[in-house]
Design a protein around this nucleic acid. Structure first.
Lengths: 283, 283
DNA sequence: GAAATAGTGTCTCTGAGACATTATATG
DNA sequence: CATATAATGTCTCAGAGACACTATTTC
């Protein structure tokens, strides 16, 4: 290590400059945006087989410019008497009526020009909610808020995000540019701002967390069958899992109830609940 | 899911309100703060044994109020033509003279009142640099910037952070309050603002990343012995590792060179380098 | 040759993948 | 009894911990 070069500016002067900069310089608006995940049941194909699950996120149709009629993540500006997480929680409750028990800050997106109007950073969050708990204003077709089915597939180094809801499909194609969450949007048919990046990053994080924490339980009601839990994993990870290995891995995290699912046309499955001493691990 | 309740506010009105809020409401200052980690060599105890390594971070002594004479993380305000990462990179280069090749955004700290003067969010980063590369203005005792040795120990659910440099020791005691990075500062002898939380979170993240990515190489020069690499792991994780298992785990990530470390008083150790096809994995 | 560290070999245990097998419901 | 799914048993393989052992240097 080389020797210190004597500073030309004194400490107090430097301090003054910092405070001056803070007073006079432009400040950004900071928005808290949220990727709200839930898993819903799809079509029932047979009276015996459990319906397939679908991974969904909530999007809001923009009423004004820019990106008029594009779909955006729910969110809003942070106020000075709250944390960014509180702001996210507030927006989430307004949109879904749920006081979410799993909300996590993901990343602050700050590329200059990401909002064409003015300087806005987005502090992105991810929330997990049980679809049974949703008191949603986003059910019908007339709404400006709707739950879109989310699917992602890899192709030649690119990722294609597909968001569908009834007949409507929104697609975005992204490429990794460094470590996540650095992606490049190659094309995008209906997502506002850089929200395609935020959604992809949230999905990657969710997949990652599923592997080494117990966050999946937040996507289910208090009691569930192990097959349902496995379906959650399968729909989020986008791949099939082998039941024996899955059950072995989950056994230490859950405890049996004495309740069984009936009228199934086959051996009834036991309901389990999350063990109370299991907490999520760190990020 | 319940049915949509007709909105009282129309879309355009809602949009108007959002934009109004953005125009009129107070905006935060956003600072990019950085926990810059490096590993240096400690005292040489014997002519044969490698010196112990020390994990260090850079702190800056504050010249003005609030927290006058307390130590703070290097950082500065983000400007509208850069991302928060660029701002962090800029501050880092100013302080260390290094264009860092590993810089990662960690988390945005936004608790109201964290800066007693005004509304300031801190977008915290972590950087890893090889101590050989540092062209530091923070070597001698007169400097306002200095490298502190970082140690953390767990005791009865609390974590004690200890930052030492020469005779000076700064201590902070923290308790987990929910998932990281939610900690409560129980007491704190010399760290400004909530920087004790930021440092602890950065350390937890670094430990975590060491286990499942190859970020450790950024703390070493291009060529190194496996024992040195192991020392990096040991000093960061704060525990001893078994050499055979460690070497097995690292073998796929490194390739041999034909160079050996000489004048050691024992069998010379081979220098290795990171394999070029090994990239860090995701967050 | 003593001391110290570099580096390897091997035993065991654990956990996951793969797949076979048993259990229990409905029609 | 056919069928479908629930749930368990077991074989194998890969990776990590533990520790013994070999290799090579300086003094």
């Amino acid at each position: 290590m080389k020797e210190k070069i004597n500073r030309i500016v004194s400490e107090s002067e430097e301090q003054f400059l910092k405070e001056y900069r803070q007073e006079k310089y432009e400040k950004p608006s900071v928005a808290a945006d949220i990727v709200i995940f839930t898993v819903t049941e799809g079509e029932r194909v047979s009276y015996r087989r459990l319906p397939e699950k679908e991974l969904r996120i909530l999007l809001i149709r923009r009423g004004g410019h820019p990106f008029k009629d594009y779909w955006a993540l729910p969110g809003g500006f942070v106020q000075s008497d709250e944390t960014v997480e509180s702001a996210a929680q507030r927006e989430l409750s307004e949109e879904t009526g749920v006081r979410c028990d799993y909300l996590e800050q993901l990343y602050t997106f700050s590329t200059p020009g990401r909002d064409p109007r003015t300087w806005v950073m987005s502090c992105a969050h991810m929330a997990l909610i049980d679809s049974d708990k949703i008191d949603i204003r986003a059910g019908d077709d007339a709404a400006d808020a709707a739950w879109f089915k989310l699917a992602a597939r890899e192709m030649k180094g690119k990722t294609i995000l597909s968001l569908t809801r009834g007949g409507l499909e929104i697609k975005a194609e992204l490429k990794r540019a460094g470590r996540p969450p650095d992606y490049e949007i190659i094309n995008n048919t209906g997502l506002a701002f850089d929200h395609a990046k935020i959604i992809l990053y949230a999905l990657e994080r969710l997949r990652y967390k599923l592997e080494y924490t117990s966050v999946a339980f937040h996507l289910l009601p208090g009691q569930f069958t192990l097959t349902e839990l496995q379906q959650i994993y399968e729909v989020v990870l986008g791949k099939q899992l082998l039941a024996p290995a899955f059950r072995r891995k989950m056994t230490p995290l859950v405890e049996e109830t004495d309740i069984f699912e009936g009228e199934t046309g086959h051996r009834p499955s036991r309901l389990y609940r999350k063990k109370s001493d299991i907490n999520e691990k760190d990020s």
